[in-house]
């Protein structure tokens, strides 16, 4: 397994107490594959992704294990992470405007990413970057090279960000909601570009997103996160065809689907509990419509473990095993 995360815990020390952003998260990813992490805002997606890069500040405590190519990253020193970042693992951020240095030229920002790990002649680096800019679909690479971020459109900026992340040909690319800050028309272009480049570079991709449409199109595997926990994981078709967790079912129901006439938009009622609280039972129980199907009010007293409901497909719900049985 190329990336293997076991029982990841991310806890932030804050003035008001500890906030557990990621709780007991396990996932794995093969080379060249795409894993989507989906979940509502605040479910810990970014916190999990940043742990792989060692990009958390000093207020974060990381527990569990993250193995990349059999190298343990939890507790690794700064220099180990520094060598990894941008070279073996690269990241694309949500908002390319704030993620780029406002006073540095695009070309210089990309060159820096390359030169942090490899030394080459100036002209060679320049040629490489112009080539990268061309590959991410820039029509005038030379102009973009000399531009400042504010001089580009949102879509162009994200393309430049993608060029920056791929310049060292990383084995793993983490894209944290790469299209959220963009116009709807541009979103599809960027996702298509990412999918194409993934094939071209054969990188593994972790795609963090709210957008289940993107997941269906692009991901091999899916992890659904709720309140810092994985509540369901499996192959994309499995999750879409027969979601095992009421939360996933709710998420899917809230996506307008093209194949259904007049797709009904059903939002999941309520909001996730505060990450600072420790919850008895299932964190989704207060919003769940199926708790009455479970005997003894188990949902509010016992945290449901992840149970296998079919090959490679698990869900953390007291009902999941039964449901799967019923389907068979």
């Amino acid at each position: 397994m190329f990336l293997d995360i076991r029982n990841l815990q991310v806890t932030f020390q804050t003035e008001t107490g500890a906030v557990r952003a990621v709780n007991d998260l396990s996932l794995s990813l093969d080379r060249g594959k795409t894993l989507a992490i989906v979940g509502e805002s605040g479910s810990g997606k970014t916190a999990a992704a940043l742990s792989i890069m060692g990009l958390h500040g000093s207020s974060a405590r990381i527990g569990g294990s993250i193995k990349l190519d059999d190298q343990e990253l939890v507790g690794a020193d700064d220099e180990t992470f520094r060598r990894l970042r941008g070279d073996k693992v690269a990241m694309i951020f949500q908002d390319p405007l704030t993620a780029m240095h406002p006073h540095h030229r695009i070309g210089d920002q990309i060159a820096e990413a390359y030169q942090a790990h490899y030394s080459a002649k100036k002209q060679d680096v320049r040629r490489l970057i112009l080539d990268m800019l061309d590959r991410v679909g820039m029509t005038d690479p030379k102009r973009v090279y000399a531009s400042y971020p504010f001089e580009l459109s949102g879509g162009m900026r994200q393309r430049a960000m993608i060029a920056m992340s791929l310049v060292c040909n990383p084995d793993l690319l983490i894209a944290d909601e790469p299209t959220t800050a963009l116009d709807v028309t541009i979103q599809a272009q960027i996702i298509d570009l990412l999918a194409d480049l993934q094939k071209e570079f054969n990188s593994a991709v972790i795609l963090v997103t709210h957008d289940l449409g993107v997941v269906a199109e692009f991901a091999d595997d899916v992890v659904v996160m709720y309140c810092g926990r994985a509540v369901e994981s499996g192959q994309a078709e499995q999750i879409f065809d027969h979601p095992g967790h009421p939360y996933t079912q709710g998420l899917l129901a809230s996506v307008p689907r093209l194949d259904q006439e007049r797709g009904m938009l059903v939002a999941i009622p309520g909001t996730p509990p505060n990450a600072g609280l420790t919850i008895e039972g299932c964190p989704f129980a207060p919003r769940c419509s199926r708790t009455q199907d479970v005997a003894d009010d188990l949902c509010r007293s016992v945290l449901p473990p992840l149970v296998g409901i079919e090959d490679a497909h698990t869900a953390a719900c007291h009902l999941a095993a039964n449901d799967a049985e019923g389907r068979r």
């Binding site: 990009l55 970042r85 070279d87 951020f93 780029m100 240095h101 820096e112 942090a116």
Partner: peptide, 15 residues
């Protein structure tokens, strides 16, 4: 705390 500083670190630049 700015995003672009995080990006600089994400590139693997020295501190």
């Amino acid at each position: 705390n700015q995003d672009y500083v995080r990006t600089a670190r994400a590139k693997g630049l020295r501190e």
